[in-house]
């Protein structure tokens, strides 16, 4: 799987004409999100919704907290503008479904069980950070032009937060999974579960190519943002694993919460922040997320967060 990503990276760096067609790329995104949601839903049908309550609360809190401490960090240490800091903070508070999918595959390969409802947490953690990011940016705007009060388009924001493609597919998939249960799983297993890893590999191939394109921007992003893109996920990952442990998740579950906290969004957050905070420079955040954090997480981060969980659980 990681090798596919590396292949994409090499192809992109060498200037190969290899590209996954746009429509297929989008179809794969839909497939992955729906499959993750559906699988989570089937698990919830078995364990019941109540088991989700505490971990859900903890993970939403995590999603809100992360941008709140990342923002001042970027302002003071990185000397970034208010808009850029707010935007990047939102990216890092939100989550990456593909990093999560890669973590699921890692756990399954190692035969480490994880709480089934973790897939639902992925959906829950997608939006809170984006909303916090927009509020931070709105506040920044008010601070900069004292006469004007910031105009936040709440209707757009809520629609983006609740009805964006990724949230809708995850939540929709969850609902379908809950309703159809074990029987539904049996009927669709051949499509939603068996080919998942292969499809994910194809997606990572394309992401490798996209990352290779971003690497040129890395120089412009500078040393600070590069270091930030590696150190922050490690810190967030540790925080996520610890939170998972407190919330009573099992070893696999805590690892996954670590991965969620450490990952940064490159689908939902960029689009939402581009519209909500137009003065933020999108290439800064995307370069940090796709050029630094994503490759770090997929190669070194995942085993690292698993290692943290193992240490904490004494396994």
């Amino acid at each position: 799987m990681v090798l596919c990503y590396v292949l994409g990276l090499i192809a992109g760096r060498l200037g190969s004409d290899l590209r996954i067609p746009n429509q297929l790329y989008e179809s794969i995104t839909i497939y992955l999100l729906l499959a993750i949601g559906f699988k989570g839903g089937v698990e919830i049908a078995q364990t019941g919704l109540a088991s989700l309550l505490l971990p859900g609360l903890f993970s939403v809190t995590l999603g809100i907290m992360i941008p709140l401490y990342v923002y001042p960090l970027l302002r003071r240490l990185g000397r970034l503008s208010r808009a850029d800091s707010a935007s990047i903070a939102a990216h890092y508070g939100s989550v990456s479904a593909v990093t999560f999918a890669a973590a699921l595959t890692m756990l399954e390969t190692l035969h480490i069980p994880y709480n089934g409802f973790m897939n639902a947490l992925l959906a829950l953690m997608e939006s809170p950070a984006i909303i916090v990011g927009v509020i931070l940016a709105g506040r920044a705007q008010t601070l900069e032009n004292k006469s004007e009060t910031a105009a936040i388009d709440w209707r757009f924001l809520l629609r983006e937060a609740l009805l964006s493609k990724s949230v809708l597919l995850l939540l929709g998939g969850l609902a379908i999974g809950v309703l159809s249960g074990e029987n539904g799983m049996k009927a669709t297993q051949a499509f939603f579960v068996a080919p998942f890893k292969g499809v994910l590999s194809l997606f990572l191939l394309e992401l490798g190519i996209s990352t290779a394109e971003r690497l040129n921007d890395l120089r412009r992003a500078g040393v600070f943002l590069t270091a930030f893109g590696i150190i922050l996920p490690i810190f967030n990952g540790a925080l996520g694993v610890g939170t998972g442990w407190l919330a009573g998740l099992n070893l696999g579950g805590a690892t996954l919460l670590g991965v969620l906290a450490a990952s940064a969004s490159y689908i939902a957050a960029p689009a939402a922040m581009r519209v909500a905070v137009p003065s933020a420079n999108p290439s800064l955040s995307l370069t940090a997320v796709l050029g630094v954090t994503f490759p770090f997480n997929i190669t070194l981060g995942l085993p690292l967060y698993l290692g943290m969980a193992r240490w904490l659980y004494g396994v």
Binding site: R19, N22, Y25, E206, S210, E213, Y266, I267, P270, A271, R274, P282, S283, L286
Partner: peptide, 10 residues
Amino acid sequence: KGIRSGMMDM
């Protein structure tokens, strides 16, 4: 503002 390759949403 750079290449807009049309691959990702952004």
